[in-house]
Design a protein around this nucleic acid. Structure first.
Lengths: 146, 146
DNA sequence: TCCTAGTGTGTACAACTGTAAACGGAGGGC
DNA sequence: GCCCTCCGTTTACAGTTGTACACACTAGGA
């Protein structure tokens, strides 16, 4: 079901997200088109974007396919996997006790569709059956609570 | 003049999270105690931790108070603010259309208490009244959808 | 055939991160 | 008074990220 992650994907930097999102949306794309699209949002030089592309290939997040003179770039992981992986990575840094509060803040601030909300509600109903009364803080090596 | 909190907090690196969590939990702490606590989880040298402390002070995430020979370190932002800020920063990188799915994945994977779930459910019920049918993708400069 | 425009590669360089050794000043024990 | 220990400061160094210039190669037009 939910595309959970095989524990920590490559770290994706903010600039890299911008390229990746375009690649994911287009599926396959030539560097030229990507550069043009990106330059409508960011004033990065061609060079900068080419460097970022190269690094993403090195990192294994993009792969290339030679078409005549040029390369077609495609992502090697799905957008969903990347999003879930990054979100989980972030949550790994948070105090276990306070993850709920952070989630609540996100729910308050993110724009959600009717359908998103319905799915979240369903998930919560399922989850409530086995949810604990409380979750201990895991910030310190001993069991001191915060 | 303090406290002009700009919309995004200082970036906190993974290593820095580890120190910050201890500081938040203890409120005020001497470097010695912090180092001892941290070394029960990470095998970092004293030096490494002292460097991280110094950088956190430079970044303005920690402040110091001189007590005799030593410094007491305290956080300048609340843990909640840091968590919410970081989570929001991450979500800023995601396709607007798919934020809901990412949230759903988190809800599925994070351990939540009964109370967390109740609060989330309340927030969702509130939100459903004004939620849109759909949220458009914002990955590309034109309105092409993914 | 030769130049040109388009695409990828090499190189650069400053800032930030992870990691840590070495140094310097001060208070406490001898 | 002297040295040791504790704690903060300096310095170091490799790897990553942001940003970009310059170069090399090739297909197609002049």
């Amino acid at each position: 079901m939910s595309e959970s992650v095989q524990n920590s994907i490559q770290e994706i930097t903010p600039s890299e997200w911008e390229l990746m999102r375009i690649v994911w949306t287009k599926g396959k794309i030539y560097s030229r088109e990507l550069i043009d699209l990106l330059q409508e949002k960011r004033s990065w030089s061609d060079s900068t974007i080419k460097t970022l592309l190269r690094r993403l290939v090195q990192k294994g997040l993009l792969k290339t396919e030679k078409k005549e003179r040029r390369f077609l770039y495609t992502a090697t992981i799905s957008e969903t996997a990347a999003m879930n992986g990054s979100a989980e990575q972030l949550f790994d840094h948070l105090c276990a006790m306070k993850k709920g509060a952070t989630l609540l803040n996100l729910v308050d601030h993110v724009t959600l569709t009717q359908d998103d909300i319905a799915q979240l509600q369903a998930a919560l109903s399922r989850k409530v059956k086995t949810a604990p009364k409380q979750v201990p803080c895991d910030c310190l090596p001993n069991d001191e609570q915060c």
